[in-house]
Design a protein around this nucleic acid. Structure first.
Lengths: 246, 246
DNA sequence: AAAATAGTGTCTGTAAGACAATATAAC
DNA sequence: GTTATATTGTCTTACAGACACTATTTT
């Protein structure tokens, strides 16, 4: 897959050459996002070791010899957060030569979407940060993270960039793909779905046309049940239909 | 940037550990796309060396020690195709353990957009293939390549997947970003722009609304000149305006 | 009853699709 | 004039935004 016709010349021979090629450590980092109370949440782990000790990092780890990138992302997510079976997709690869002071490290970033209840399960040393997105639309750029107390949560390495790119990506995807339900429990009201969309997009959206659009899309199925224990008229509960009729 | 709090434990110490980390060769491959006569074109290079000798590959090469991924993509593109200053963006990273029989190779794929005249400049061993996209919309999947004679051009490694992902990506981007002009000369007619859009999207689009949409977008600027040497009424030439007024 | 949100119906403005009519080049 | 495409204008349709009204729950 390298497409490099010059491997032999540059590396001293195909069989003997592998060790002579420039080598790097390859890692995966996963930005795990959720939405609660209309705000974007990010799963972070406190770093105990140098470098960047004391800062907060995305769950990450090195790719093992026999595993694919996707497999590494699934494994790392399970090991560091306990999460399994969640929506997970490759995001972008970061490879600045100076991004890790120890050695050359290439990181293949992933993002995961999970509902807030599953996110809270957490792992050791784990915490949940709230994201401030300092740009509109799909401008892109780093985000900042805050704790429950509102205090700034410093992110390690370029993880603020990675999280920002994850937000940018799902803002784009939301316009043409039903990924909102990945951030909700299996059954939800239209209001909850709209709040998820608003939190991701970072802006209010029109209630009437949102309802129409969702109900017309054929991707929602009414369960016949209603939400309970709310101090207002209860709304119908819906469920996402994946292979919906064309 | 690894976000790995477990580096020390797993690799035997920060300073001594670099060599103990799982290492891989990191390459970049660039899918150079263009459009001519309403068809998508791909720049390919014939592989002379094993593996996959005789098949056709994207321009690619290994990332050097001191350079970033973007820098590697720019360098490889220049070395293998002679192209410089073209639209270039990271696409996706492929890391199947078995994708290269020689050693573990991770490839960070890029795509580039270029007008057909610049594409023809080419490099040694280079050729231009026409792409068949066997899926609609943004379904995704590998594409097939054909020569001028219509004969199948076998692509090396997983390069058919990479090219397919490039097509999928630009199909998506075309709906909300003005990248069509990257595939055209600096001045072009609305007809040419529409043909580019149709070639990328793989479907006809409505002429009237396309014209309105483009002219209303504020991204086009009339040059006052017209195309010449056409056997019909000549159309006005336009130019893309980047920082257009809001 | 008051408060709060759910859900329905209707009007308006915008933009796309369809289509007709006119304009201008090569031949 | 014929052919081919450019360019403009109009009509229809689809959908988003806005708003009004009714419905249903808790307090």
């Amino acid at each position: 897959m390298t497409g490099d016709t010059g491997l032999k010349e540059r590396a001293g021979g195909i069989d003997a050459g592998a060790a002579l090629l420039p080598q790097a450590a390859v890692a995966v980092d996963v930005a795990v996002l959720s939405v609660e109370d209309g705000a974007l949440q990010l799963f972070v782990i406190r770093r105990e070791a140098a470098p960047e000790a004391g800062k907060w990092a995305l769950p990450g780890g090195f790719v093992e010899a026999g595993e694919s990138l996707d497999q590494a992302a699934v494994r790392v997510l399970r090991e560091k957060s306990g999460l399994e079976g969640v929506y997970l997709e490759q995001l972008y690869t970061f490879g600045d030569p100076a991004r890790d002071p120890r050695t050359r490290v290439i990181t293949v970033a992933y993002y995961a979407l999970v509902d807030p209840i599953r996110l809270r399960a957490g792992g050791r040393g784990a915490n949940i940060a709230w994201l401030d997105v300092p740009w509109e639309g799909e401008t892109g750029g780093p985000v900042t993270a805050r704790g429950k107390d509102g205090k700034h949560v410093p992110l390690a390495f370029d993880h603020a960039e990675i999280a920002g790119m994850a937000v940018k990506r799902i803002r784009g995807k939301l316009n043409y793909t039903p990924i909102g339900f990945q951030l909700l429990r299996p059954e939800f009201t239209l209001r909850q779905l709209q709040q998820v969309h608003e939190a991701v997009l970072g802006r209010k959206i029109n209630k009437d046309s949102f309802r129409r659009r969702m109900l017309m899309s054929g991707e929602l199925e009414a369960t016949g049940r209603q939400e309970i224990a709310v101090d207002h008229r209860p709304a119908e509960l819906y469920r996402f239909v994946h292979g919906h009729a064309v």
